[in-house]
């Protein structure tokens, strides 16, 4: 693992004590500094104001309303602290939030299923990406978005491999990250990316978070 130049400071919002403890353990054991925890949305906002961390990891559904309190609290905190990374945990497989989160830019946002926390390498990779201004969307959620039945169009012209690459782009992965996943060379990935963006008629050559936005906007029905 690459050495992190500066320890990433995290606030965790999760109302179920055992799971909160689990998240904190996973983060601490992976070298992150958990500077605060909260069990409900108002408390989460207070912790975020007090600590001004690099990242907030929050359960979407939290007290007091148990609807999308965690999501609203995190976005509210980000409005007063631009650059705050927001990684949301969800119990449900809902591609809708992904489209909402990237509505005004895909920088420093993430949305993963709660159980990913137990897949430690994948989870900490997502934490690191979001904390440093990148994007991390859950593979299952992106699969739902890519696999959604739609009108015949340029997507049908992608090869199986190109679809895999498209999906990994939408998850927020970099070319080296994609290469690692697919066990191919980075230049092979670059080749696929060029083809995909040509076929879908999207502008290529942007930073990772810009191309996530382009791809997700394309996938939006």
């Amino acid at each position: 693992m690459m050495s992190v130049p500066r320890v990433i400071r995290v606030v965790v919002g999760e109302d179920q004590p055992i799971f909160q403890e689990g998240i904190v353990h996973v983060l601490q054991e992976s070298g992150f500094d958990v500077v605060g925890t909260a069990g409900d949305a108002p408390e989460l906002i207070r912790r975020l104001r007090a600590h001004r961390p690099d990242l907030v990891v929050a359960d979407i559904q939290m007290p007091p309303d148990h609807t999308d309190d965690g999501l609203r609290a995190a976005l509210e905190a980000r409005a007063s602290q631009p650059g705050l990374g927001v990684l949301l945990l969800s119990q449900f497989l809902e591609d809708r939030y992904v489209l909402e989160l990237v509505a005004d830019g895909a920088q420093g946002v993430g949305y993963v299923l709660k159980e990913r926390v137990s897949e430690i390498a994948m989870f900490t990779d997502a934490v690191r990406r979001v904390a440093t201004g990148g994007t991390a969307f859950d593979p299952d959620v992106v699969a739902l978005l890519v696999g959604r039945p739609r009108k015949p169009g340029p997507l049908d012209e992608l090869t199986t491999r190109e679809r895999q690459v498209l999906k990994l782009i939408a998850e927020g992965r970099s070319n080296p990250g994609i290469a690692e996943q697919l066990v191919v060379t980075v230049s092979a990935v670059e080749h696929h990316v060029t083809h995909i963006f040509d076929k879908l008629d999207l502008p290529n050559g942007h930073a990772d978070h810009r191309r996530v936005l382009a791809v997700l906007k394309y996938l939006k029905p």
């Binding site: 591609d95 809708r96 739902l144 039945p149 009108k151």
Partner: peptide
């Protein structure tokens, strides 16, 4: 929107 994303046909 979420519901129809899982169906085997386009909605």
């Amino acid at each position: 929107y979420v519901l129809t994303g899982r169906l085997p046909f386009r909605v």
